[in-house]
Structures are given as structure tokens and as C-alpha cells.
């Protein structure tokens, strides 16, 4: 459904942090983007969401062009990102965070969606009156995902969801991803743990300095010696 081609973008004019990337999510339910620190993964995701100071190229969702739209319009069309560091609203309660995720929806729809998310994350239900700023990293990550899911997105973008979390929580989150896809959402995932990232995804792209160096089915990349050497520390 989401297709990105010839994408370039960056923070200062003339300096491209993302330089000619393409991805096509139509082939896979989960797509991973891999790359070392500073490769431009986050910048690329922000570019898709309309948050880069400049960008060129095409972003299409079901044939509709998104690349000229403002971030909130892109979000309304069904592309939702869970940022690196989660980006929950610290002074809002869990419930309020979720309601903001469903911004623009009618009250009954909000209620059913919220119930669905509370079923998905019972922990959030227990803490529904708590302000997000007082919650643990894992809880905030769940909240961020639930908030994005409130709008029934077509594409869910996860930027390093496991960052800074205890292994047991990371396991929970990776168990969750395939289940999300069953609800009809496509996932675009950036993950530091390349092994896990490749295991959970069907397609993957490896980027370096803003350019794609490798791409293909995750299973093949997992076997690729270059990936094994530089990311998995295997030879």
C-alpha cells in the first residue's frame, strides 16, 4: 500500500541525510529498515511523515500522493509513527493520550477503540488515570503503540521500539508485531537488534549514509554474509 520512491531529504538545504531511497510495502506485512547509528533511518521515517525540513521524491499511499502534505494530514490519511523515544504526552493521562491518538473521532468510536487497546494492553487499563510522564519506559512504549493504533492506521511506523527496554518487555513487543498485522496494518520497523528485526519482517532494506546498500526478503538478508558480518557480528 505504501510506496516510496526517489526519496531525498534532510535538515539543511543541500545536505541530504536521506539520499534516494525506495521502499515498497505492498509486498510485505512487516518491512524492516536496518543500518548503523546515524545512517539516516529516523530521518527517513520522519521524511515519510512530513517532518523533515526538506524532502523530494514520491510517497504514495494506495496511489494517493502524500509527499506534499503536512504531517497532520499524512497522519489523518492513516500513516502513524511511534517515534524513537516514544513521544508520549507526559502531562496527559493514559486515557487522554489514547484520545489524542483518536483525535477527530466521535465519542462512541473512541470508546470502542480505547476498549480494544485496553484489551491489547491490560497494563494500560490498570494505569488509565496515570499521567504518562510517571510511567515506566515499557508502559510508555505500549502507550505509544496503542495511541497510534487508536486511529486504525493503514501503516504503522515503529522507530526502535525496543530501545532502552528490559528484555522481557522487548519480547512482548516483538510478539505483538505479527498480531498487529492481522488487523490489517502494515508495519515499517526500524530496529537496532538486526536479528530480531529481520526475524519479524518479510522484507528489509539496509541503509548506509542515507543510501540503500542492500534490500530483499528478510530471510535472504539474514543469510547474507555482509549482513551477518556487519550487523550480527557473525562470520
Amino acid at each position: 500500500m505504501l510506496k516510496v520512491s526517489n526519496f531525498r531529504g534532510g535538515y539543511r538545504k543541500g545536505v541530504a541525510v536521506v539520499d534516494g531511497l525506495q521502499i515498497d510495502l505492498r509486498q510485505s506485512a512487516v518491512t524492516s529498515i536496518l543500518g548503523s547509528n546515524g545512517a539516516g533511518k529516523t530521518s527517513f521515517l520522519r521524511g515519510i511523515c512530513g517532518l523533515l525540513p526538506w524532502r523530494t521524491g514520491e510517497v504514495e499511499l494506495n496511489g494517493e500522493r502524500l509527499d506534499r502534505l503536512a504531517p497532520h494530514d499524512i497522519a489523518r490519511l492513516g500513516v502513524r509513527m511511534v517515534s524513537e523515544g516514544r513521544g508520549t504526552f507526559p502531562t496527559l493521562t493514559v486515557e487522554e493520550n489514547l484520545k489524542v491518538g483518536g483525535y477527530g473521532l466521535s465519542a462512541p468510536v473512541l470508546a470502542t477503540r480505547m476498549e480494544r487497546e485496553f484489551n491489547r494492553f491490560p497494563r494500560l487499563y490498570e494505569r488509565r488515570g496515570q499521567i504518562a510522564g510517571m510511567m515506566s519506559g515499557g508502559e510508555q512504549q505500549m502507550l505509544a503503540i496503542a495511541r497510534a493504533m487508536m486511529s486504525d492506521p493503514r501503516v504503522l511506523i515503529l522507530d526502535e521500539p525496543s530501545q532502552g527496554l528490559a528484555p522481557i518487555i522487548v519480547d512482548q513487543i516483538f510478539d505483538l508485531i505479527p498480531r498487529l498485522t492481522q488487523e490489517g496494518v502494515q508495519v515499517l520497523l526500524v530496529e537496532q537488534d538486526v536479528g530480531r528485526g529481520l526475524e519479524v519482517s518479510e522484507q528489509a532494506v539496509v541503509i548506509e549514509k542515507g543510501r540503500a546498500t542492500l534490500s530483499g526478503p528478510s530471510r535472504e538478508l539474514l543469510a547474507d554474509p555482509r549482513v551477518r558480518e556487519s550487523f550480527l557480528g557473525l562470520s
Binding site: P71, H72, R76, R80, G87, T88, L92, G101, A148, S151
Partner: peptide, 24 residues
């Protein structure tokens, strides 16, 4: 109100608010 929530969301985190469909 939703309006008030949107305002507070923008105060807390502008980008996340935009990523939730709020026109900054």
C-alpha cells in the same frame, strides 16, 4: 474537551501531536 486535549498535547510534544493528526 478534545480541543483542550489537543492544546495540551501540543504543549507536551509538538511532533507527537502532529503525528496524531493535530494541525499545529
Amino acid at each position: 474537551t478534545e480541543f483542550g486535549r489537543a492544546i495540551r498535547a501540543c504543549r507536551d510534544n509538538r511532533e507527537s501531536a502532529q503525528l496524531s493528526g493535530i494541525n499545529l
